[in-house]
Design a protein around this nucleic acid. Structure first.
Lengths: 226, 226
DNA sequence: TATTATTTTGGTCAATCGTACTATTTTAAT
DNA sequence: ATTAAAATAGTACGATTGACCAAAATAATA
């Protein structure tokens, strides 16, 4: 299973123990399903498709996952869990200046968006979240964790900003970067301009976070301009 | 057909003429399909689903649209065409200061993102674009048109910014707003904070567009900070 | 009214789907 | 070597899908 092209891209937490052969089969199915999801989209996922990709029988796939919903949920858990782990691993840099942490954050997220996996996967997650509250909750938890880092950075760079405004600003920064996915992601029209986009994002976010005040954005200020 | 809940949300350009009855059937199918797409997602679209929603026979749906691909493409054309028309209608304000045009642009886009239609539709479009180049091209054309307005505004507010940087900045602004869809769209966790998000966006974009220079973001400046 | 074009119906078809079930083979422990 | 558990293969069922087709119903026209 270490030979699978997508090996290392899932956080697999198998509950029941079994033979090593079974462990391989279980993981092989998850990797194959992930691959189909990336290459052909959610609609193309079927037990028979998966079985063919695993050189396995349909009944065997059903032996590991008693229902399609079960398979999809375990796959999404493995996908999102891996993103969370990678995120924590990339961003636990203590003792680094807040400004540099923000620079690193931007680069890590936007470089990741350029990968085929992230470009293809996240729009699928957004669609699934619109129809399945289980997915919606899990995706929301992922983004909430991602924002905790932004909130700390903003707190360091702009201590006077109240909590509500800080958290909404973190949401704005995170959502803003996510928006690049469909424009500058893998094989997208602006993929070649990602370096410039990263520079614009960095310049924009640094100025914004450091200088923004409550008066700039509070609800009262919807009539006057600075 | 004027009684359909989604009446006015599609730009329908029927090619063949026929009896008025046929025109109604044709449009009814498109509106019903749009409704299914919004409420249940692309996966739930089927000839039989549509027929039931139209109180029509399955074969009749197939009579109007000889294939599902044909139906989907005409629907997407009607959807995107309508967005383009609405966009042009909302933003042809001549004689208004560039800064106010940017404010209006932000408000219009982000308020539209709050609607159920846009919140549900665009993630579906992004996914479809990943698998169907016809959809990818059509969606890209829509966004390209949207950026023409941003490019004019940037040109007014920051005449010294070269074309490449200006166009990439327009892309950044547009993508940034699109990113709010899955966070602050209809029924999303941050929907109630959209007013604050609009204020943050306005503050951020105005400062950025007015003050950014080539030196801030050009490829050379990846080692030094201001 | 008779004729023609258009719309609608109802049914059929092969393909695919998720799932359940049994039988067989493989594996690990005794 | 025996045995029980685990894994695999194979098959079959009911449901749904896109699509096709002939007949019937409707509308416009001469």
């Amino acid at each position: 299973m270490e030979t699978h092209p997508l090996y290392g891209e899932l956080k697999i937490t198998r509950k029941k123990s079994g033979y090593s052969r079974g462990k391989n089969g279980y993981e092989h199915i998850l990797f194959a399903t992930l691959n189909i999801l990336i290459e052909e989209g959610y609609n193309s996922i079927s037990f028979r498709n998966i079985a063919k990709a695993c050189d396995m029988n349909v009944g065997n796939v059903n032996y590991y996952f008693s229902s399609k919903q079960e398979l999809i949920r375990q796959l999404l858990e493995a996908i999102i869990g891996h993103y969370e782990d990678e995120f924590d691993k990339s961003l636990d840099q203590d003792g680094i200046a807040a400004e540099d942490r923000l620079r690193a954050y931007i680069t890590i997220v936007l470089e990741d968006i350029k990968t085929k996996k992230t470009t293809r996967l996240f729009p699928e997650l957004w669609v699934l979240a619109n129809q399945d509250s289980f997915v919606a909750d899990r995706v929301e938890a992922l983004y909430r964790r991602a924002r905790t880092y932004l909130n700390k950075i903003i707190l360091d760079l702009n201590p006077d900003l109240p909590a509500k405004e800080r958290e909404t600003l973190a949401l704005f920064l995170s959502a803003s970067m996510e928006g690049m996915t469909t424009f500058a992601g893998y094989n997208k029209p602006w993929a070649d301009h990602m370096e410039l986009i990263i520079n614009i994002t960095t310049k924009s976010f640094l100025d914004l976070v450091k200088n923004i005040t409550v008066n700039d954005i509070s609800a009262l200020s919807n009539s006057k301009k600075s």
